[in-house]
Design a protein around this nucleic acid. Sequence first.
DNA 1: GCGGAGTGAGTA
DNA 2: ACTCACTCCGCA
Length: 737
Amino acid sequence: MDRRFADIIIDITHEKLDRTFQYIIPDELLDTVKIGSVVSVPFGRGNKETKGYVINITDKPEFDVNKTKSILRIDVGSDNSQTKLIELAAFIKQTYGGTMSQALRCVLPVKTKTKPIESIILKLSISEEDAKALIFESERKNAKARARFLRELIDVKEIPQNIVLQKLNIGRQTINKLVEMGVVEKIVISSYRNPVSGDVSKYDVVLNDEQRQVVDAIDKSERKVHLVHGVTGSGKTEVYIELIDRVIKEGGEAIVLIPEIALTYQTVMRFRRKFNDLVSIINSKLSQGEKYDQFERAKNGEVKIIIGPRSALFTPFKNLKLIIIDEEHERTYKSEQVPKYHARDVAIKRAELEGAKVVLGSATPSIESYYHALGGEFVLHELSNRANGATLSDVSIVDMRDELKSGNKLMFSRKLLSLMEDRLSKKEQTMIFINRRGYASFVSCRSCGFVYKCPHCDVALKYHTNGKLICHYCGYETATSKICPECGSKYIKTFGTGTQRVEGEINKLFPNAKTLRMDFDTTRKKGDYEKILSAFANGEADILIGTQMIVKGHDFANVTLVGIIAADLSLYAQDFRASETTFELLTQAAGRAGRGSKKGEVVIQTYDPDNYSITLSKKQDYKAFYNQEIAYRKLLKYPPIYNMAVILITGEDEDVVFNNAKLIFDYLDGRKGDSELFGPTWANIKMLNDNYRCLIYLKDENVDNLSEMNDILERYVEDKDIKNINIQYDLIPMSGY
DNA sequence: GCGGAGTGAGTA
DNA sequence: ACTCACTCCGCA
């Protein structure tokens, strides 16, 4: 009998139900039930009608067919935005691997393990005398819980249900029985909290000609995906706001994705001033409940615009018409957890399902997006002028080898020092950016070469001026000693340049200058980040020293000098994107200078002044950089020309990890088709949190072939019932391993 | 033996 | 999450 079955995830929030149940698809529904359908099924002993999501359809029964129940019907009442989100989850699973449950959890995020957002309040609905009589009767019948509960109700009138359940230790049955008897009344209160509030002085955006042309072009276009390449300070936000305004006026809704770090009060206020309460935000600091509230408000149509990081992409709007991804090149758009999806590609898929447009914006677009734009897959728009008439800064490159030859042993070039002095005298501000992605001071013995390493991770410990050595991967801390623990020599010293050392040097060179430092250490507490930025914006300091976190999209009108120390460090990362990252960081950092009326200057200090990512960032010539970079990617078969994936195998035992990696490699190698396989090799960071890490690389022109390899891998893992190791698949990784 | 309270397993 | 089945308890 050719019956078809649907794998269904029951819409109930509990980990025990985090798996599929198979149901028979009745004949009359064979044509209509699809992956992503929301259906009603009988569930549990009482065959209680329950909502479920169809996540797969097969011919193979996986359960005793005689005990398999049938789907009752398709939920027509369920809004189709949910169906589309589940379809999106199927796409994520298909493309990025992982289980369907994991994909669903990221698409319908707050449905899991959340404290009820609606609080139930219990209230006595009979008179006190009647209640007292009931207590008497209950006590006589030894119904202790019931008596205890009623007494409490007489005492405080109203009690939240969760307190009754947890604190008074009274069962659900007891409560429900009393409700049934008409003794107790249930009052359901659902509260939506609004995470954004504050002054809203309305203002209208006035676009310049260039901005208006881009807005019109996108608005009129039939095409779905647009890339706006706008130089730093060209006013991309105004373009977004105008586009959103047009969409809203036609009854549509919009999602704005921005990197978490750029989600500042100022950014949100720009949107609020235009759209007022139609805007809401999502960020990682919101509790699950608050996040859920925002999604509910979006569903109800109370909110039309959601601003947030990656996860905002899954806002359940009913009439989504526009998705904006600001700073599109940012790595944070790639999820770090399984499924390791990229928000840009998922956004494009969602837009396709909803019939919406996607607008990507950046001053330094990712090589991938620009490639697609040039290839005609995306539509390219250029904003080449700074919006308020400000001009691009003058950028100069200083070769630090020459400085050393001329006897300057400081970490600042003479040019940078004289400019800093000049700015201090003019009361203008300076930003010093230390490009040290993955690098900082470490402690090493000059006599035997010993380096302090983390006992849990295969990385050098970073030195902090409080005398502690800290692992930036797992947080392990230890103290430094005055003598080398290996050979006993006293020649143990710190190497490298950290933000703390730079600040120390500046304080020595310019004792009157006020400095602020922004890095890993100074932004650990909630709100630290904002505090430092607003202090600097208010002119409370002359010089701001920081790592990559200071270069992202902040607008300080009084900054006229940006110094970049060790510009080339990010070039040494073991990652095919090293040049892209460097160009991006330098261009963005340089873009911080001269955003007000005064012209800015930028000094880039490097030991590798001829590298194309450095020379071209001086010219702020993105196109020239792109041409160089794409040639390199083509030569070495890297994305976007080729697609690649990494399989990461981790585990506590070195041999077990490597042997399994070898087995997996051989297994895949026999089934690879046209794909290329490399490995297994140890990761750059061989050990992390006591786990060994081994890699297999896959390359193929066609993404689908890579997804197929992952399918093969997942089936293999399932068959072998592999223990003690963890396997992760990462399609088109954004960072090195 | 009964009503009621508390616990645990299973949901296809 | 919810429900059913089971056990335990105090009283008759």
